[in-house]
Simulated scan of single mutants.
Amino acid sequence: MLLEAWKPISMGFKRRWWDCIALPDDVDSCDEAAFRMQIKQLAYTSLKLLKEAIFDKELFSLDIYGSLIGMFELNNLDLVVASPVEDYFLYINELPESEKKKAEQVTKPFLNALGDDYSVCCQGTAFFPLQSCMNHSCLPNAKAFKREEDRDGQATIIAVRTIRKGEEITISYIDEDLPFEERQASLADYGFSCRCPKCSEEQQ
């Protein structure tokens, strides 16, 4: 059953997490092999804990697990989500006065301990299927992003120029302002060489 579920994901190019994760600025290039081995070990430990948690020792191999995380690594989008703690306190504030006083007897110590931090938004990354299915162009006509003021966990796709009827909507997977060689090197992680109009012109 797991192999059947894997078939749609197995189509197309993907890299394992420890192969595609960007090298942090504080890690020297001569230490890259050791860094990637640490990431692989982290994935192994994570998979082991996952298997133990769901009591399934045959869940899937480390390579498949690494590919799943790698897909997320290459396709995730930063996002901001409203603080669930703030929503909880706002809910209590709307209760009838008698219920509110009872609830505040429990929540007030926590609120005092948190101070202003109770309203801090949660920051992280998310995988959005629609955005992840969009093709790349170094001259994109759209942009996928998450505004800080949008705290609902949703991503936004906006047009960055006029899009003609029937024209494919594309986004950029990388910084399209990089020089040609650097763009191609960055896109190698996705398994293709870009042949968009911008790259075709610069390659000549």
Rank of each mutant, 00 (worst) to 15 (best):
I9S: 11
M37W: 10
C20F: 04
K14H: 15
S61H: 08
M11A: 11
F55M: 14
L49M: 05
W17K: 06
K40M: 14
D31E: 14
L62V: 06
D19V: 10
K51F: 02
D26Y: 10
T45Q: 06
C20K: 00
P8V: 12
A33P: 01
K57R: 08
S46V: 01
W17V: 07
P24E: 10
I21T: 06
E32F: 07
A22E: 14
E52F: 01
Q41C: 03
D31V: 00
P8G: 05
D26M: 04
P24L: 09
R36S: 10
E52V: 03
D31T: 08
A53I: 03
S61C: 08
S10K: 09
C30P: 03
D28E: 12
C30W: 11
F55P: 00
F35M: 08
L42R: 13
A34H: 06
K48T: 10
E58I: 05
P8I: 12
L49V: 02
D56M: 09
M37H: 11
K14D: 07
R16D: 09
E58Q: 09
A43K: 01
I39F: 05
V27W: 01
F60Y: 07
A43H: 00
Q38M: 13
I39H: 05
Q38G: 08
Q38V: 11
R36D: 05
W6H: 06
L62K: 05
K48Y: 09
S10I: 04
L23W: 12
P8M: 14
L59M: 09
D31I: 00
I54H: 03
Q38E: 15
C20N: 01
D19L: 13
L42K: 14
D25A: 14
P8Q: 13
C30F: 12
L50N: 04
D25V: 12
L59A: 02
F60P: 00
S29F: 11
L42N: 11
M37K: 13
S46F: 00
M37C: 12
L62Y: 04
A34L: 13
R36A: 10
K7G: 08
A22S: 15
K14L: 10
K48R: 13
D28I: 06
L42Q: 15
D19G: 06
L23I: 15
D25E: 15
I9N: 07
S29N: 12
L23E: 12
S61Q: 05
K14T: 07
A22P: 08
C30V: 15
I39W: 01
F60E: 00
R15D: 08
C30S: 15
I21F: 02
E52D: 10
D56Q: 05
A33L: 11
I54M: 09
I9Y: 14
D19F: 06
D31Q: 14
L42D: 13
D19P: 04
E32M: 12
I39Y: 02
E52S: 02
Q38K: 15
Y44S: 02
P24M: 09
K14Q: 11
W17C: 09
C20D: 03
R15M: 12
K57F: 02
D56T: 07
L59Q: 01
E58F: 03
K7V: 14
L23S: 12
I54E: 05
I9Q: 09
W18Y: 10
I21A: 00
D56H: 06
M11H: 10
F35G: 03
C20H: 02
K7W: 06
K57V: 05
S61R: 04
D56I: 08
L23P: 11
E52N: 02
M11G: 11
W17G: 04
F35Y: 13
L62C: 07
Q38L: 13
L23C: 08
